[in-house]
Design a protein around this nucleic acid. Sequence first.
DNA 1: ACACCTGTTGCACACTTTTGCGCAACGCAA
DNA 2: TTGCGTTGCGCAAAAGTGTGCAACAGGTGT
Lengths: 346, 346
Amino acid sequence: MAITIKDVAALAGVSPSTVSRTCKDNPSISRETKEKVRRAMAQLGYDPSAAGSTASLQSCRTIGIILPPSPREAYENPFYLEAIRGISQFCNDRQYASTILTGRDNEEILSAIQFMMRKDQIDGFIVLYSRQDDEIIDYLYKEGLLYVLIGKAHRFANQTIYIDNDNLLAGQEATEYLYALGHRKIAYFGTDSTLLFSADRKAGYQSALLRHGITPNPAYCIEENSPSCADGSALQELLLLEAAPTAMVVSDDILAVALERACGRLGLSIPKDLSIISFNNSLFARLTSPQLTSIDVNSFQLGTEAASQLINHIENPNLPATKSIVPHTLVKRDSCRRLAQEAATF
Amino acid sequence: MAITIKDVAALAGVSPSTVSRTCKDNPSISRETKEKVRRAMAQLGYDPSAAGSTASLQSCRTIGIILPPSPREAYENPFYLEAIRGISQFCNDRQYASTILTGRDNEEILSAIQFMMRKDQIDGFIVLYSRQDDEIIDYLYKEGLLYVLIGKAHRFANQTIYIDNDNLLAGQEATEYLYALGHRKIAYFGTDSTLLFSADRKAGYQSALLRHGITPNPAYCIEENSPSCADGSALQELLLLEAAPTAMVVSDDILAVALERACGRLGLSIPKDLSIISFNNSLFARLTSPQLTSIDVNSFQLGTEAASQLINHIENPNLPATKSIVPHTLVKRDSCRRLAQEAATF
DNA sequence: ACACCTGTTGCACACTTTTGCGCAACGCAA
DNA sequence: TTGCGTTGCGCAAAAGTGTGCAACAGGTGT
């Protein structure tokens, strides 16, 4: 067993309470006594055990990380682990623990949450996703539990702490980039837009088009919720249109890879026949040929920022709900080409 | 604040100790009393708080998950998150918490470990990787801490609990599969073999060749430790050899995708000019064209099994070090072709 | 009737830290 | 010398649970 506050107290010749107060730099302890105690702590290599402070402070310095209930495939997106690593890194630094809550469906996750709360084992949650009408977020909100969202709040936006990219802006920038290269027939390919990041990117895409006087064409907008479905016919239909797009904004690298495959099957070459810009800048974007131009959303930083906000709110309970925005970066690679002038005459 | 053992005791008209013993089904409490207590517990919705038991039992029902210190790229391998999900799922079921320990280098990870231990905040560790001469594993061993390895033990093998695939066998099976398709010029492409899974797969590859009377050709064996390096010249040299291989065993899907790209650049087509079999069966294997034949190592199950072993050892401290093997499965897709008979005459 | 045994339960303390309150000592002024 | 204020520190209770030991009731054997 590790050494306790009593050992230090004995060595320093004071009472445990004095040691405790010294640790927290309480002004009612004299400088000399503090010095003495600190020497004893250093000599013994003392670190207060969490067990005791948890008991007496009713706070366990642990946060829960909630993964979405999704098909297994979704977790292969490196986004999640990067965000988790960001959270863990920050927690390690601030001497918090973090625990992942997962399950095969909403119900399992809910019961894990309830269990942890009943046990007083968790001070707050980070929810790694954001979607419309989510049962778990509703539960957290209704129970008055502390949580921060990675992604934009759907309901209760005013009272919710969240960390997000400016996905609307990112969607606009992606579209503007293609526009600046001379593209006018720009399509959008995204996941199911109940996932809010996708909805925002799509809205950004649409608003960029409108700004240039282009009315978004519904036939130019495809939404699939899995890269496996993306082999389907909708994409093929779009690509074979009389007025097929010359460029596409794709809401995730993984979908973009699926799109590349579809193009390959149809004999379209990238970027010659189709320019592609996607999001997340994951390994997927770097392993394809051509490598994908992609918008990096800094998922690691989303994680650290979320952890930072949550811990801040744990330690200062009455703070108003803060929102923070993590910047994104456009990484240019080889999947977009400048359109020759004549093609630009829409 | 949640309801405590005292509330239950008061309602049931017994002492807190009786409630405690009832929870653990201690035989020294009569059936009638237990019934009475259980009714009170149900009525109040009581669940023992972890804080108290942590204090009194000196065990916090928390395990640490140690990520390798690696270049960021490595974490994009879906293997890690799948293993973590497996661990979390099992922990959630068994009402344990898990916390991820990570850092930019060995030193940061070590200090996170030391901190957690000094705080009595962790009962044991799961190490998500296994490599030669690892400082962190040495530390855990020397401090006598409880840990289980995912992957094969290098040093201290006898005293180490580990969960692994039979990577030697898997390497053999991959090679045998290619052999059975008529391939004789089979090369190996793997990561840096200080990572033990890679070393084992390579050894399996070699032994399968030897079994068929083929002496492994050193020129047929390439090791790179990052998919970015894989764009390098070694691979190109091999593929352009006079006696270039007709098939390759690749230790990871991600490397296999890099290999596919290299082939593309050299005008080689898959599986026509080169058959590829790889490991992990990740999304990478499914998103390429052609889709990769790959050996699924069941990373989720590696995680659950590791958590199961660790918790078992936490609760039964004197168990001998167990080892368990998680089965793998060959998933056939489109990256391997049967060689015409004449080509098989080596 | 007394001693002993068995089965059941509660008391008191353990674990470790935090903190309200009170006490002792000291200086200074009346 | 008494009284008051201040400073510095320890006592003890608090958080919630687990457990060794003692006690108690009731029954049995002598």
